[in-house]
Design a protein around this nucleic acid. Structure first.
Lengths: 250, 250
DNA sequence: GGTTGCGTTGCATTATGCGCAACGGCCATT
DNA sequence: AATGGCCGTTGCGCATAATGCAACGCAACC
């Protein structure tokens, strides 16, 4: 809508691929060098872009600050965190919390066995949206039309032989997940890792986030992991209640 | 330099403090609502801003993607990582890697005891720049003028009784660090945690990054930790050599 | 020492972003 | 159910502010 801003913001993904000099930026934007210079300077003033010694530009530190503060302010995350830690102390496995946003699934919290650190290591990376338990839970709740459209446009990489191969199979899986109210990923992303997940719902019943428990085959079998399902669902429900309560008290 | 872009980018830190509606954004920017709307729409198209159900805006997921890709592309990090992991396997303690950028110190990698995860948990958060070993190493290498200016404008929070209290003490500490070529933080940030760190240098001898080893008192005393110093410095030097080599081969 | 390639600056043109005012939908209030 | 207020949205004319050009300065390289 705003040409100037649009051009400026287009520089960011461009630099995400690696540092570039003024000429390259101008060329890839399709504008004059002086224009690119002005945009880069503005981005620089805001710390989104950094100029290294060789004069080339790359993404700046403020970007991390923003991403950090953004994740800190997600209220689901804040409410869920103590529950996730508590669950982790009981069962010890890795626990993820994820949300859906504009065709992407995003991890926003993680609790590691006996070590309660918030780790954003996967944030931003393309999540295995076609196989991850949390992704299934989040997508299963989308409106019919949006779900179909998204399923069609996704890629279906075969991480393992058990990965979901195509839109039809994916939509079928989503239907199952939607009906049963929980989801699994049994070796669909990495052969030896299984996950079980449950949805977190807002006051209106819509799925606002999803949590999952992951464990390698060598520690617990898929069957053993499934015995934890009631516990996981109870935790998810507890978070849902608290989250709903916060939005419209009582 | 570019008014439109400047205004648009000013929205990001504003939203970092929490979601806001159109009116609030317009007011805090000092522009008409229609102007704010156009800027927000442009930010939205680029995924930097997300519109939640209650119509309020908050920071968007693409921000994480950018931050993630940015950190992936830091070549020091890439080169250092295997060295850090190797060192971790020897000594087991937590290892940090940090860089300096425009008055900020930024963790860009971390290796946790026996668990080699990249954790960006602290990224963006105000690092304890006046006490952290890595910060001392990075600031000690700044040009005299910049170092003094920075020291003056910093805050000196007293995390513990051993925290560095003021610019004069800080500059003295930096001089020591600069001369000896390594740094410590003995309970200056958290009473029970000690760190030792060493600088990583580019081909021109300038400090491009710093690494540190952290361990709680209860595991090893400060004296025992210091016995690891030669090992840490050797690792840092190995990274320096490889990094220099990559920039100007041989 | 000339030449090429890069970033930078000043300037005239006009496209482009601006604020205004009016519209429309939603919720709350009576 | 009707009404008033609030907030997001739209279209438009005006003037600002962003654009591209051309010339400059500075290195590095031949």
């Amino acid at each position: 809508m705003s040409q100037t801003v649009d051009r400026a913001l287009s520089i960011l993904p461009l630099l995400a691929q690696g540092p570039a000099d003024l000429g390259q930026v101008a060329e890839r934007l399709g504008v004059h060098k002086s224009t690119a210079l002005r945009l880069l300077r503005t981005l620089h003033e805001h710390g989104l872009v950094y100029r290294q010694q060789d004069q080339r530009y790359r993404l700046g530190a403020r970007l991390f600050a923003l991403a950090q503060e953004a994740v800190e302010n997600l209220d689901v995350r804040e409410i869920a965190h103590p529950h996730l830690v508590a669950l982790n102390e009981q069962i010890g496995h890795t626990i993820h919390l994820a949300v859906y946003e504009e065709s992407e699934v995003l991890y926003i919290d993680k609790v590691e066995s006996r070590y309660p650190v918030r780790m954003y290591s996967r944030i931003g990376k393309p999540v295995a949206i076609t196989v991850a338990a949390v992704a299934k839970l989040l997508l299963a709740d989308l409106p019919e039309a949006e779900r179909r459209a998204l399923a069609e446009k996704l890629d279906y990489p075969m991480y393992t032989s058990r990965s979901i191969p195509n839109p039809a199979a994916f939509l079928r899986e989503l239907a199952v997940v939607r009906d049963q109210g929980w989801a699994t990923d049994l070796g669909g992303h990495e052969e030896s890792i299984n996950c079980i997940g449950a949805p977190i719902r807002g006051a209106d019943g819509r799925v606002v986030a999803a949590m999952s428990v992951s464990a390698p085959n060598v520690v617990v079998t898929a069957e053993e992991l499934l015995t934890l399902l009631p516990l996981v669902r109870r935790t998810a429900d507890a978070i849902s209640r608290e989250y709903s309560g916060a939005v419209s008290p009582q």
